[in-house]
Design a protein around this nucleic acid. Structure first.
Lengths: 194, 194
DNA sequence: ACTTAATTTTAAACGTAAGTCAAAATTTAA
DNA sequence: TTAAATTTTGACTTACGTTTAAAATTAAGT
């Protein structure tokens, strides 16, 4: 790889990190290309040299965060251990992302609105892979007879939905600590798989 | 009430119904004031005679649909019967709205992005009321010892999240019929409350 | 029916933010 | 040092929400 190519990659990553910050504060619609640019002392025109358009930039931010979450889950799965413990760790990770990276983690919410067809395909692929990691642990649990589910994929959808909804109501400054929240969710989710 | 006032109300409702249709097809961002207006053979300027701005219009669409859903749930609750059956009916109603009125039912998703403070307050009030209806049936169930939940409101959040997520993946043309979906969801949700 | 007042609609603006582009500036490589 | 490649600029276009003053229409009183 040429020097110049590496430079472009570095710049792209700089832009991504900066954009992720702004998006997590102001949301997708609240974030302007102008603001992302000025944060890095560029003009917005330059952004279009690195990213095709706003939704491309947003897509890559989402991708960045989701890929990181994916890696986290993969390493939890690899570490192995009792299925219930593994699932609990996965739940903890997912909920933590959902809260801490609220906006970028869940651009997920309305992918069709924001992404074009090509991006959408990639998002869905990555998302399927991510969701598949939950299927994997559920499957393991079923095999060792610790989990039971008639339609495991539906159970997984229910679990994911329950966890994602956390963003809609949870406030860190509220009555429940993040730890409490995660404990409660883990317990309820395990009941689903009983 | 004067004739003119009634006329305004009728017109407002016409606009709402038309807007709800467009929003459910194209989503909030995909819907332009221009399009809503032209659907009714008006110019977009006129819309601003009836609604303060776009987010006011969208808010009222959401309100309209959510109010209808609320009435449906209230009448199910009033009818009474075995708590599990009542809850199942409520689940069916909620999921049906979530699928059929996808966009307007769940402007819910990101209320802060779209609504101003005043609207937000009203939305949250209505939403709390709506959610409270689920608390009510859960409470009934606990009292007759058919449901068990340590933190019933968290259980309710989990249930709502699970149901709302349906919009993200369910396709009527897919493998599962809406009936299958609702049956599966009901069964899983009842497990949460076991 | 006629006149005046109130209501409703219009069309032409404006503001903001996304996206484009040709030229200018800078960097790289020979 | 110079020519080519890369990167940045800023002015322009377009789209859409929103405002506004004036025009058109409708209602009400006599």
């Amino acid at each position: 790889m040429k020097l110049s190519e590496r430079k472009v990659l570095r710049k792209k990553e700089q832009i991504l990190l900066s954009a992720i910050n702004i998006i997590n504060q102001k949301g997708y619609s609240g974030t302007t290309m102008e603001e992302v640019a000025s944060e890095l002392l560029m003009t917005k025109g330059s952004l279009y040299y690195y990213f095709k358009n706003k939704s491309d930039l947003m897509y890559q931010c989402h991708n960045f965060v989701l890929s990181q979450a994916t890696k986290d889950l993969e390493s939890i799965l690899e570490d192995g251990g009792p299925v219930k413990d593994v699932l609990k760790k996965m739940i903890e990770t997912h909920i933590t992302y959902a809260i801490d990276e609220k906006e970028t983690f869940n651009l997920i919410m309305e992918p069709k609105r924001f992404f074009n067809e090509e991006q959408l395909e990639l998002v869905l692929k990555l998302r399927n892979h991510y969701e598949g990691l939950f299927d994997e642990i559920i499957q393991r649990g079923i095999e060792v007879d610790e989990f039971h589910a008639e339609e495991p994929k539906i159970a997984r959808m229910i679990i994911l939905g329950a966890m994602n909804w956390v963003q809609q109501w949870y406030r860190p400054e509220g009555r429940l600590s993040k730890e409490d929240l995660i404990t409660l969710y883990s317990d309820y989710i395990l009941k689903i798989l009983e």
